[in-house]
Design a protein around this nucleic acid. Structure first.
Length: 567
RNA sequence: GUCUCAGUAGCUCAGCUGGAUAGAGCAUCGCCCUUCUAAGGCGAGUGUCAGGGGUUCGAAUCCCUUCUGGGACACCA
């Protein structure tokens, strides 16, 4: 990639001059009026060499200007006080890199040093409760990170990890019994109603809470009647969940859940017992996961409740055993609400203590709490959060009302655009931040939105459709600043992607796609291609736009967004 | 109480692995459709980057501290 090549040149020069350094870090210019790329290492060299940065910078720049193939890389390299090396790339360098990107299915992205097997745990819907906005977040962020990992060349295994065996099931079973609904008549609407009601009731009534816990425990112990009810609830919910994931184009390799971890619990118990890690405390079995170095108090992990039932932490540990045995992953990533960070800290530590999987295998990728426009968190347990389906319907309605012709679009295209609206609105947020959910913002179709990206793609597509490139090799020319800006932006891809991958931040890609689209819009509106008589220029530009669109399409797919046929 | 995350333009946010003049979208106000799709483009204005200290040649970014708000803190997930 660009920065590597530039770094190599500068490092070579620095070493030739006898400066002791092993890296000359080059970054994208933050003063595009002055240069394309900059290097700020002069300050550090000055410190270690006990010389003035000006002296060092000027000597470096002088030497760079003397290299044989200078014009293969640069148009200009200059030193600017107090210590910046400013580089302007030559057209031939830019175009050489673009050609390389065009010839490479991954746009010159280098292969990973080690191909890792990564298990991703996202989605995590509770059977028994309707999917709400928070579930879209985990599904989309998780799916996007999965696709980013795959694009980078890693191997992924995505597990939906259904919440299908915890207390919430006990609550729903209790509710179904209480309302005396026969299993054959049970519907998703019943579940939507019963879960929030029972959840609220448990908070008020201790006796009901105990009863629900009791049911949960008996279900886990194999009570046939409860087992039958569980199966039915599971089936109804799964159908609903599958439908929504299908709509969102989110898919999983494994459709497992907490219940599938149960067979592994005896083994987990044995491992912990052998290491003498299980302690009794207040009737419950716990694992002490605190460390002396802890700044805060880390409470023990509750392995088994005093009534004998198992909890989230135990099934998570059992799931880790299962995953290590079946897939030997290098990493296990969990995409959940960041409020669960303490829980995962406990589980990761317990796993490490017991030698199931070392702490370094795990990453908890937390995302911000879903808040309302008033800044307060949605109380999902009380059913206050809007259902996901409502969100889809709302976005669709706004979309259709936006343009008369939209009513004539195929359902398929409408769905793709609705997906683009929601996902781009979601993924352009930094996933770690709290998430203000505002339905009008999530139905927005103008500005920095999914539709803007799709619109740009389709316009470009229309322009390039009629020109055949016949293996055209771009010339050494760059024709104007609109043109140059777009070319330079495309070169940033490997760095942007690398950051998105390393930090697991899809919003880096979202921002980047948007930047490309802004420049592409400016480019084609100021440079008419159709009717151009200069054949080479025309083909150069079509080449550029074709590459732009290929990249947009590929990156949209990393954001789980598909392109419609028309808009 | 302890820990933790945040506070950036009127609103919603990006930037935070330290760099030169802090960026987008929305909203507001102009201009551009007989011209490859106006869901677009061009132009205009707005900031004590919560306050205070520190480290550094250089801080929105790192450290300390105060204020404000969110969240977590063993038998929920």
């Amino acid at each position: 990639m660009v920065v590597n090549e530039l770094e190599e040149i500068l490092l070579g020069v620095a070493k030739k001059l006898g400066y002791e350094t092993d890296s000359m870090r080059v970054i994208l210019s933050n003063r595009p009026d002055l240069c394309d790329y900059q290097c700020d290492e002069v300050f550090k060299l000055a410190k270690s060499a006990h010389k003035s940065p000006i002296e060092i910078g000027e000597s470096l720049v002088e030497e760079v200007n003397k290299i044989d193939n200078f014009s293969d890389y640069f148009e200009k390299v200059e030193f600017v006080k107090p210590g910046f090396i400013n580089m302007v790339l030559s057209p031939s360098f830019i175009n050489k890199l673009l050609t390389g990107m065009n010839d490479n299915p991954k746009f010159n992205l280098s292969a990973p040093e080690k191909i890792e097997t990564v298990v991703l745990d996202y989605g995590g819907p509770n059977v028994a409760k309707p999917l709400h906005v928070g579930h879209m977040r985990t599904a989309i962020v998780g799916e996007s990170i999965k696709r980013i990992l795959n694009f980078a060349g890693h191997k992924t295994i995505a597990d939906v990890h259904l919440g299908d065996y915890g207390l919430q099931i006990g609550q729903v079973i209790y509710g179904v019994q209480k309302e005396n609904i026969s299993l054959d008549d049970l519907t998703i609407e019943d579940l939507d109603r019963i879960y929030p009601a029972m959840s609220a009731l448990c908070k008020e009534d201790e006796a009901v809470k105990e009863k629900c816990a009791e049911i949960t425990k008996e279900l886990q112990d194999g009570n046939l009647e409860y087992r039958k009810m569980w199966k039915k609830i599971f089936e109804i919910s799964s159908e609903d969940i599958l439908g929504i994931y299908k709509y969102l184009d989110v898919s999983f390799d494994l459709w497992l859940g907490e219940s599938d971890a149960y067979p592994y619990i005896p083994r987990v118990e044995k491992i912990f017992k052998e290491k003498d890690l299980l302690k009794e405390s207040e009737g419950a079995i716990i694992v002490d996961v605190s460390k002396e170095t802890d700044k805060k108090e880390v409470p023990p992990l509750v392995f088994q409740k005093s009534n004998g039932a198992y909890l989230y932490a135990t099934t998570d540990l059992a799931t880790i055993v299962q995953r290590m045995e079946d897939y030997h992953p290098d990493k296990i990533l969990y995409v959940t609400d960041s409020r669960q960070s303490l829980h995962f800290e406990q589980v990761f530590r317990a796993s490490d203590l017991a030698g199931i999987a070392p702490y370094s295998v795990f990453e908890h990728l937390g995302y911000g709490t879903v808040n309302g426009s008033d800044g307060k968190p949605y109380k999902t347990r009380n059913g206050d959060s809007p259902k996901l389906q409502y969100l889809f319907d709302q976005a669709k309605e706004v979309l259709i009302s936006k343009k008369e012709t939209n009513a004539d679009m195929s359902n398929e295209d409408v769905d793709k655009i609705v997906n683009a609206i929601l996902k781009f609105a979601d993924l352009q947020n930094n996933r770690e931040r709290d998430y203000i959910f505002d339905i009008s913002k999530f139905s927005e179709v103008v500005g920095k939105t999914g539709p803007y990206i799709l619109y740009t793609y389709l316009r470009i597509d229309k322009i390039i459709q009629n020109v055949s490139l016949d293996n055209h090799k771009i010339t050494n020319n760059i024709y104007n600043n609109y043109d140059r800006d777009l070319r330079l932006k495309l070169l940033e891809f490997p760095v942007v992607f690398k950051n998105a991958l390393e930090y697991r931040m899809p919003n880096y890609l979202a921002d980047y796609i948007y930047d490309i689209c802004v420049l592409a819009n400016a480019f084609y509106q100021n440079n008419h291609i159709n009717g151009l008589e200069e054949e080479e220029k025309k083909k150069d530009w079509v080449f550029l736009l074709a590459l732009t669109n290929r990249m947009i399409k590929e990156m949209l797919s990393l954001l789980v967004i598909k392109i419609p046929t028309v808009m």
